[in-house]
Write a protein that binds this DNA or RNA. Structure first.
Lengths: 188, 188
DNA sequence: GTCTATATAATGATAGAC
DNA sequence: GTCTATCATTATATAGAC
């Protein structure tokens, strides 16, 4: 667990994270990862026994990043509606990546849910993270009873925007739909 | 182009269609297809030179099926709002497959849009088919100016429902969200 | 912890006898 | 149009020298 080893490990995870997002999990090979990480072929097995283990490490890192983001939103405002707006605004803020590669959470889960339900279990945690947080915000807004239902509705809307604007590579469509989502939030 | 050859070809397409849907395009190999079709390994190349050609044939067949479905809806009602309701009802009607494998159009496009934009061009036609038809219905409903925007909004909503209920394998969520979509249509 | 060589299985794809 | 054998390539994965 020297400094050098930790750095190599971090580079593998960083490369895999990007590649899984840009090419998909099945579309990314060990060769792709070691090439991107700038390490030697067999070396990757010193850190990860299987491709699944790499995925787990990538998911864990994304979980950490998103937890930090949620903490930042909570620090930014104590108003639940304001916080929900930060979630909606994030979609527009990330429009370039969303339009090019889709939602990193949605596309990963969509791929893994097809025929690898065991593998998908870990990536589903990314959905749960946002779902739980959104549920808390809707509850704080006074919709305790239907908080989870509203959170899932918002996730559906966000995912739908990501899918269609990704398919059509259409940032204008994304912004228009995010606007409608903001209106829905206002009128709640 | 004998009867037997046509039958073999049809079996390849049918097997590939199911496998691409259930396992994804990258997740399906030639071996999988020939095994499912019950033909011999090399034989598939008599009908299709590449995997891409098989995908094209699968997409063409889906296009034919969906065109027939749209024609059926048009025959079923002359009221645009009734027709739009048939679209929304289709989601609930196909909930078992949607919850297990996602939307056959959305998941295919999501996968191919990642790093194979050329390949995705053909599968995008499936989206266009529905988008154009929905646009016509919204126009006939008196929303000529924003017909396309409404059609894309409906597609976003439908895709979002498919993604999230697929990820959570949750048919109840799907039905609840389809209900909300029906309300949106009513209040239009 | 790094690097080279290699094993083994699966991939997409072909050639040619029948 | 059917079937067998096989190719070249790539994949995941390992062993072992350094």
């Amino acid at each position: 667990m020297s400094t050098k080893g930790e750095k190599t490990r971090a580079e593998i995870i960083a490369s895999a994270k990007t590649l899984f997002y840009e090419r998909g999990y099945a579309g990314t090979s060990f060769s792709d990862i070691v090439d991107a990480a700038g390490i030697y072929r067999g070396n990757i097995y010193h850190y990860f026994k299987t491709k699944d283990e790499i995925l787990q490490a990538v998911v864990d890192q994304r979980l950490d990043e998103f937890r930090a983001l949620l903490a930042q939103w909570e620090a930014q405002s104590s108003q639940p509606k304001e916080r929900l707006r930060l979630f909606v605004n994030m979609i527009a803020g990330r429009k370039n990546d969303l339009v090019r590669y889709g939602c990193p959470i949605g596309t990963l889960n969509t791929e893994l849910a097809k025929e690898q339900r065991e593998l998908q279990q870990s990536s589903k945690a990314l959905f749960d993270l946002f779902c739980d947080w959104l549920t808390s915000q809707f509850a704080a807004l006074g919709h305790a009873k239907e908080a989870r239902s509203l959170a899932l509705h918002l996730l559906c809307r966000a995912q739908g925007i990501s899918v269609v604007s990704h398919v059509y590579e259409d940032a204008k469509l994304l912004k228009r739909e995010v606007g409608k989502l903001g209106t829905w939030l206002d009128e709640l």
